[in-house]
Simulated assay, not measured.
Amino acid sequence: MHAPDDPYLHQEVLVSPMYLACSNGTGDAGFAPVAHWPHHYLDEGPCQLVVTSPDQRIRIGWFGDDFELWRISAAAEAVAAPRWTATFNYVTPAEIVACLTTALAHDYADADADAYDGNGRFLATTSLHWADAVRPLTDAGWRREAAERGTVEVVAPDGQAGVLIDSRLSGRDDETVTLWAGPLGWGTRAEAVFTARTPSHLIAATAAVMADSAPVVRERHQIDRGMEHLVTLTPVGPTADPQVSRAPTPLDVRCTAVTQAVHRAARAPRTAADLRVMAARSRTASSAQSRPNSPAPAAAARPPASSPAPQHGR
């Protein structure tokens, strides 16, 4: 736990590697690529928000009070059982989720534009070669390590992230691919889990950002104390006593420019209206400032700001 009277508690920092940055308590980055899709706000049940493709074959659910914060699935028809499912726990940075939602938005747009292929790549057959799903990682120097028979594990150079592929499971809905980052623990291990029929290119798109060296912006209190020795934190703005004001230095100006660029890249709004809404958001709610070391800390997470356009379901 961070001391509540720490003057640097809300100081913005650039966190690297990104996969150890934890969640910032909101789903903005993950929902930004599909901000133009219908939103359905639910008053009851564990799922608080569902964003769907216009034909409702792709569903992106936000479970703000659960350990598994995101559940994303795709089906051949709106009322059919999911062909595949991906879940992300509350520790996973939303920037990782955004890579999957970006790929889904592109696949759906391509299918919608092609009158001869209404299914789209988001329902493509999974590759028989495990390497296709993790190629962005192996190309970046992640190496295969010894694993149990019937499984494949590829691990980052720092040993703090990896992907485990389990080919021993035979069911079509079995969870066969797990992207992970951070030490084992409720507040430190990020996990993204994909079922057997998830298209390989979607897993690869999600994994690709984990090989990216670009940092992400967090406030200091959002980094679990158990992770601080594993990450590089670069203060954004003044590094002296935050209660003493001073004129910005050239370094401050450069850091601010980097922060703004990272924010734009992470949130990637589709329209000017989206940008205005995101800029108007308040910082992480006070309820997200601390997470107990228990299975229930996801309650601090909150859904993204609603779009200014009329939304479905509310």
Score class of each variant (00 low, 15 high):
His2Met: 11
Asp5Gln: 13
Val13Thr: 10
Val15His: 05
Pro17Leu: 04
Pro17Ile: 01
Met18Ala: 08
Leu20Pro: 04
Cys22Asn: 14
Cys22Leu: 13
Ser23Met: 04
Gly25Gln: 02
Thr26Tyr: 01
Gly27His: 07
Ala32Gln: 07
Ala32Cys: 08
Val34Met: 12
His36Gln: 15
His36Arg: 15
His39Thr: 13
Tyr41Ala: 15
Gln48Ser: 11
Val51Ser: 04
Thr52Val: 11
Thr52Lys: 10
Pro54His: 10
Arg59Asn: 11
Phe67Glu: 13
Arg71Leu: 11
Ala74Ser: 12
Glu77Ser: 15
Val79Gly: 06
Pro82Gln: 10
Pro82Ile: 07
Ala86Leu: 08
Phe88Thr: 02
Tyr90Ser: 07
Thr92Phe: 01
Pro93Ser: 04
Ala103Tyr: 05
Ala105Pro: 06
Asp117Leu: 03
Gly118His: 13
Thr126His: 11
Ser127Gln: 07
Ser127Arg: 09
Leu128Pro: 09
His129Ala: 14
Asp132Arg: 01
Ala133Thr: 07
Pro136His: 03
Ala146Thr: 10
Arg149Trp: 01
Gly150Ala: 09
Val152Pro: 00
Glu153Asp: 01
Val154Cys: 07
Val155Cys: 04
Gly159Gln: 03
Gly159Glu: 01
Gly162Asn: 05
Val163Asp: 00
Leu164Thr: 04
Ile165Ala: 00
Gly171Cys: 03
Arg172Asp: 15
Ala181Val: 07
Pro183Ser: 05
Arg189Asn: 12
Glu191Pro: 03
Arg197Lys: 12
Thr198Ile: 04
Pro199Cys: 04
Ala204Arg: 05
Met210Pro: 01
Asp212Trp: 04
Ser213Asp: 15
Val217Leu: 12
Val217Asp: 11
Arg218Gly: 01
Arg220Gly: 00
Ile223Leu: 15
Glu228Ala: 14
His229Ser: 10
Thr234Pro: 03
Thr239Ala: 15
Pro242Gly: 04
Gln243His: 14
Val244Asp: 05
Thr249Asp: 07
Asp252Tyr: 00
Asp252Trp: 05
Arg254Tyr: 14
Gln260Asp: 14
Gln260Gly: 11
Ala261Thr: 06
Val262Gln: 09
Ala266Asn: 12
Ala268Thr: 10
Arg270Val: 11
Ala272Asn: 10
Ser282His: 14
Gln289Pro: 00
Ala296Lys: 03
Ala298Gly: 15
Pro308Trp: 09
Pro310Asp: 01
His312Lys: 11
